[in-house]
């Protein structure tokens, strides 16, 4: 039956087909390996789809999760990455950490303290920034707003 396994296998089948299609105009040596793999992946995916359609197994992969927390974390991470490009590593790091320290604590026994979250966020960002910037000499992004 149509369950999450057959749907995801179908997605892999599409990826395999796309890979085959996209390697069409390459040199023989450049396209040989990816095409072999794409064919194998396609075959496995078709078998998997067939198997899971025959087996009548019900799947509920996303049951029992707190969707709100997960979705906000996913959005948070994405926004964080975008912010790094815009305002640089330090400020975006502080914002991200402070918000989630505070947000994930909500619903507990005590109401979370925003000040405490902010202070921790600054300390952690500062510590890691120093380690990477001054000791390992990794030039971390400064953000477009600051001319990076």
């Amino acid at each position: 039956m149509l369950n999450s396994t057959s749907i995801s296998s179908f997605a892999f089948l599409i990826i395999a087909a796309a890979a085959w299609y996209m390697t069409g105009d390459l040199s023989k040596m450049g396209s040989f390996f990816p095409r072999v793999i794409a064919v194998m992946m396609g075959i496995f995916a078709i078998i998997q789809i067939a198997v899971s359609l025959l087996q009548k197994k019900k799947e509920e992969p996303f049951s029992g999760i707190d969707a709100k927390r997960v979705i906000s974390m996913v959005l948070g991470i994405s926004l964080y990455v975008a912010l790094i490009m815009l305002i640089g590593f330090i400020l975006s790091g502080i914002l991200f950490l402070a918000f989630f320290f505070w947000y994930l604590e909500r619903g507990g026994d005590k109401s979370p303290s925003m000040a405490r979250s902010l202070i921790l966020a600054v300390l952690i960002t500062g510590a890691f920034y120093s380690v990477f910037h001054y000791i390992f000499l990794v030039p971390l992004p400064v953000g477009m707003l600051f001319g990076g």
Binding site: I90, L91, L123, V142, G143
Partner: peptide
């Protein structure tokens, strides 16, 4: 403890952001 740390933190924000701007401005 937090009250003691706070000024240091504020100083650090200044130092870090100033450093960030200075090195790119």
């Amino acid at each position: 403890k937090i009250r003691f740390i706070a000024p240091i933190v504020i100083l650090m924000i200044f130092a870090l952001t100033a450093g960030g701007c200075g090195s790119s401005g």
